[in-house]
């Protein structure tokens, strides 16, 4: 069973691009974060608006007649409502244009808006999406629309011709710290075993284990490192490989040796 929906796009240059769609989960999470930020902005602006308008009415009241004071208050309320609407629409347009299809929420969740042809979303797309947002947000209509179509588009996406995709996480491949004892063992490994037997996927498993190691439950940490070290020996056809050393050291050594030999091949 395919756990994620994907979309394949053909660019005018005949390049095939494959993207994983953001899905309702990521989109709702990003929206939640954006709405929290938006609400905070709104509270801040409302406070400032309140203080400024009260002060303004106080200043102008002695100069203006009652009729003008009443209309001034109406104008202030109208300008406030206009500002709120501008922020509601502008927040998404400003960020999606400035951050190439991302808002703070989308950046946190690692998703991005692109055009149907795979190109980055620009001002017209961002504007259309933002203007149709009130319709999508009306009794959460957008959520239902996303749930019931394969491309996971809301009404704004259909009209603007956009898709929301997941971005590949970068920065995971940074080198992990390896103790000197493991580095010494890695030197021996490079001479003794053929690391070509280890596929990049196998290396990725070892790296993932080492990344998670500190946050794992102590008992599981030991069991898993023993299990992986044993599987590694079988894979490398070296049953006697560093049997006296702790399993975690063996894994760190293999990680280090592989990095030395091939770099990060993923």
């Amino acid at each position: 069973m395919q756990l994620f929906n994907e979309v394949t796009l053909q660019t005018p240059e005949s390049v095939t691009l494959k993207f994983r769609l953001a899905g309702i989960g990521n989109r709702a999470y990003a929206l939640l974060i954006d709405y929290i930020l938006w609400s905070l902005m709104l509270i801040g602006i409302s406070l400032v608006w309140y203080l400024v308008s009260v002060r303004l009415v106080e200043l102008l009241e002695p100069i203006l007649s009652d009729r003008f004071t009443d209309s001034l208050e109406l104008w202030l309320v109208a300008s406030y409502l206009l500002t709120i609407f501008a922020i509601y629409v502008g927040y998404f347009v400003f960020f999606e244009v400035g951050w190439q299809g991302q808002t703070p929420g989308k950046r946190w969740v690692n998703i991005r808006v692109i055009r149907d042809n795979g190109r980055p979303a620009r001002l017209p797309q961002a504007l259309l999406r933002a203007l149709l947002r009130p319709i999508d947000d009306l009794v959460f209509l957008g959520v239902l629309v996303i749930l019931f179509n394969r491309q996971e588009k809301r009404i704004g996406d259909w009209l603007a011709g956009t898709l929301v995709i997941q971005e590949e996480r970068r920065g995971q491949a940074k080198r992990l710290p390896v103790p000197e004892a493991a580095q010494a063992l890695a030197q021996e490994l490079l001479e003794q075993v053929n690391l070509e037997r280890l596929s990049p996927e196998n290396f990725a498993i070892i790296r993932t284990y080492l990344q998670r190691h500190d946050k794992m439950l102590p008992a599981a940490r030991r069991t898993k490192s023993d299990e992986l070290a044993q599987q590694l020996r079988e894979r490398l056809e070296a049953p006697e490989l560093a049997l006296q050393s702790p399993s975690i050291l063996v894994l760190q050594a293999v990680y280090w040796a592989y990095q030395q030999a091939y770099g990060d091949r993923l």
Binding site: M1, N5, G23, G25, R27, V109, Q166
Partner: peptide, 17 residues
């Protein structure tokens, strides 16, 4: 798995069966 993907997977499993 990220927060959003946990929900995506749950919905996908629900849809499938």
């Amino acid at each position: 798995m990220s927060v959003g993907n946990l929900i995506n997977i749950a919905i996908q499993i629900y849809r499938a069966q």
